[in-house]
Amino acid sequence: MKIAIIGGSGFVGTQLIQKLSESPNLSLLNIDKQQSAKFPELTQIGNVLDKDGLTSSLKGADVVVLLAAEHRDDVTPTTLYYDVNVQGMRNTLEAMEANGIHRIIFTSSVAIYGLDKDNPDESFPADPFNHYGKSKWEAEQVLQTWYTTHGDWNINVVRPTVIFGEGNRGNVFNLLAQIASGKFMMIGNGKNEKSMSYVGNIVAFLKYMIMDKTTGYNVYNYVDKPDFTTNDLVYHTGKILGKNIPTTHIPYFLGMLGGYGFDLLSFITRKKMTISSVRVKKFCAVTKYDSTKAMSSGFFPPFAMEEGLRRMLKAEFGK
C-alpha cells in the first residue's frame, strides 16, 4: 500500500511517518512545501494550492492523509485559512480523482464545535468561533458534498483536540514551559477542563484509520482521557519534574484586559505577540470533548495521558 501524506514535514506528520515506517509493507510519500528534517528521502516539495503539481505527485498512491493546514491563531491575512484549508481540500480531492484514489484520512479539529461547549460528541452542531475552526468546518462540508456523488469512496475524518508531545512547540509547550519555569500566572481559577491528545496516541489512531477503517464515511473526535484542568497540569508538572511550583492567580477580566492591550500593541507595531485576547480566551475556556466513539471503535491508545505528559516534560524540561 502506498500512502501519500500531504503536509507531513511538521510535528504530527513526522511522528506519523515514523509510526508508519514500522510496517515494512507500506510505501510512504510526504508532500509538503517544506523539506522534512527527518525524512528528506521520502519528501517531494509540493503545495495544496498547486492542483497540477499535486495531481502529478499523487500518481500511484492508494491512500491520502491530508494534514496540511493553516492552524496558528495569528495567521494574516485571514483569507489564508480558507485558501489552504478549504481550497486545498478541493484541490486534493480533484487530484485524487484524476489518479483513481478513493481513500482519504483528513485531520479536521474539535475547533469546529467552538468554545465552552458541553462535552460535544460527533453529532454536536458546528459552531466555530475563529477562522481556523470555520475553515476546518467548511473543509468538512466540501468532503460531505463530495461523498454524495462519490459513495464508493472511503473518507475518514478525525477531529483531534490540542496535540502535545516531545518536539512540539505549540500552545501546550508554551503553557508547560511557563509552569515549569516557576513563574506561572494562572488567569482565572484554573478549574476549566482541557481535553488533550498525546502525539504518540493520535498517530497510532491515524494508522488505525488507514489500516482498519477502509469503507464508508466515518467521523471521530480524538481525545485522550482523563481531561486535566489547568490546576491538574500544574500539579502533574511539579510532580513529574520534582518541583514545587507556586502559582499566582489573577482574575479573568484583568487577563482579558491585558490581552486586549497586547492586541493593540501588535496592531501598532505590526508585530505578532505571544499574548493576545484570543489566547487568553482559549486558555480560560472549557475545552472538553467526548471521545467515546473513537475509544469504542476497537482502537486502544498505547500511552496513558500522564505517561504522555511525563515523556514530554522529561524530554523538554527534565535536564
Rank of each mutant, 00 (worst) to 15 (best):
V63D: 09
V64E: 00
A68L: 10
A68P: 03
E70Y: 03
E70L: 04
H71K: 11
V75F: 05
T76L: 14
P77N: 05
T79L: 06
L80I: 14
Y81A: 07
Y82S: 13
Y82L: 05
D83K: 14
V84E: 03
N85Q: 11
N85F: 12
R90L: 09
E94Y: 12
A95I: 00
M96Q: 02
H102W: 00
F106Q: 00
V110L: 04
A111H: 13
I112G: 02
I112N: 08
I112Q: 02
Y113V: 06
G114V: 10
G114D: 10
D118P: 04
D118L: 11
N119V: 12
P120D: 03
D121I: 02
S123Y: 08
F124G: 01
F124S: 14
A126M: 07
D127Y: 10
N130D: 15
H131Y: 03
Y132W: 09
Y132F: 13
Y132M: 05
Y132R: 02
G133I: 04
S135A: 14
W137H: 08
E138G: 00
E140L: 09
Q141E: 15
V142P: 00
Q144R: 14
T145M: 12
T148Y: 03
D152W: 05
V158R: 01
T161W: 07
V162I: 14
N171K: 00
N171G: 05
A177G: 02
Q178M: 09
S181Q: 11
F184I: 08
G188M: 07
G188S: 11
M196S: 03
S197M: 08
S197V: 13
Y198F: 15
G200P: 04
G200T: 09
G200E: 01
